[in-house]
């Protein structure tokens, strides 16, 4: 499989964060927020690549780019506050600065699968790393077959990118399914796990590529459902998460079996990682 962009070659030194201003901050839900950065040096990126964001005095974490790869001058990140660094990033406002390194990693193989039906399945914050793929598909719509996006979240209040979800729902030739785990009586959408919605999507399994982003427990179950639907595991791609330090393949922090998630991934074909996923020690 030809890989798209490899580790970043555009930074003066890939380990040196560049102070970058926040230009816009949006709260998506109680725990999730999105901000745009205006990088001094604009570097092209591919959907699925990530940056290292440094909250000064707290730490640095990998965060996928959630914006449009056709507009790399505005670097968008969508983050769920789970611990010290993500919570510190959640306190930023327009005009503040963060340390930025990147883009890093191998993204979604969207260029390699022109002409295919494309399924995207996201759980929770996993919609953020897949949003650039959606932008890509909408921009190059004629180059792909049927497109289906499934998105699962905890509750209706946890849904992110709500205005865009409505827009995508109204987009012709764009199948969107949203399921929440539980909801109050005012919610008239789907409630339940996300994979049963697969049966409502139209796609030709022999010519479909699927991309999954969410916690490991979710993508393992989803990959099985996709295989049951007839999609070969070599055409199922998952985005792996491991703790990272250098993000350029030097420190070994993100090692997963023979792979370094930071430079061989984060996106991997499922057939490459499925056996490794059964080793709980990894």
């Amino acid at each position: 499989m030809p890989q798209t962009l490899k580790a970043c070659a555009t930074l003066p030194h890939p380990m040196a964060p560049i102070m970058t201003p926040v230009t816009r901050f949006i709260r998506e839900s109680e725990e999730v927020f999105t901000f745009d950065l205006a990088p001094e040096q604009v570097a092209p990126f591919m959907p699925g690549q990530f940056n290292m964001l440094y909250a000064f005095g707290v730490g640095e974490i990998p965060i996928s780019i959630s914006g449009d790869s056709h507009a790399p001058e505005r670097l968008t990140h969508t983050i769920r506050a789970v611990g010290p660094v993500s919570a510190a990033l959640g306190k930023l406002k327009a005009g503040d600065r963060v340390g930025l390194r990147g883009p890093f990693g191998v993204g979604w193989p969207i260029q390699e699968y022109k002409g295919f039906d494309v399924l995207l399945i996201a759980g929770g914050i996993g919609l953020a790393p897949l949003r650039p793929v959606i932008y890509w598909l909408l921009r190059h719509r004629a180059a792909y077959g049927r497109v289906g996006v499934l998105y699962g979240a905890r509750t209706p209040d946890d849904l992110i990118f709500r205005a865009e979800l409505e827009e995508w729902r109204r987009t012709p030739d764009f199948q969107l399914g949203v399921a929440v785990e539980r909801a109050g009586p005012e919610w008239t959408g789907d409630v339940g796990y996300v994979t049963p919605l697969l049966s409502k999507l139209r796609f030709d399994p022999a010519d479909t590529v699927a991309m999954i982003c969410g916690p490991e427990v979710m993508f393992r179950a989803t990959a099985l459902a996709l295989e049951d639907a007839g999609i070969a595991d070599s055409r199922i791609f998952v985005s792996m998460e491991r703790n990272m330090k250098c993000a350029i393949g030097h420190c070994g922090h993100c090692q997963f079996g023979p792979h370094f998630i930071c430079k061989d991934g984060p996106v991997h074909p499922y057939d490459r990682v499925r056996n490794l996923l059964s080793y709980r020690e990894l």
Partner: peptide, 20 residues
């Protein structure tokens, strides 16, 4: 059975889980 499996996934709160 499918609903039982889905209910297990929902009970695990899997959209909140950490991988790393």
């Amino acid at each position: 059975l499918k609903r039982l499996q889905s209910a297990r996934m929902q009970a695990l709160g899997m959209y909140d889980a950490a991988n790393a």
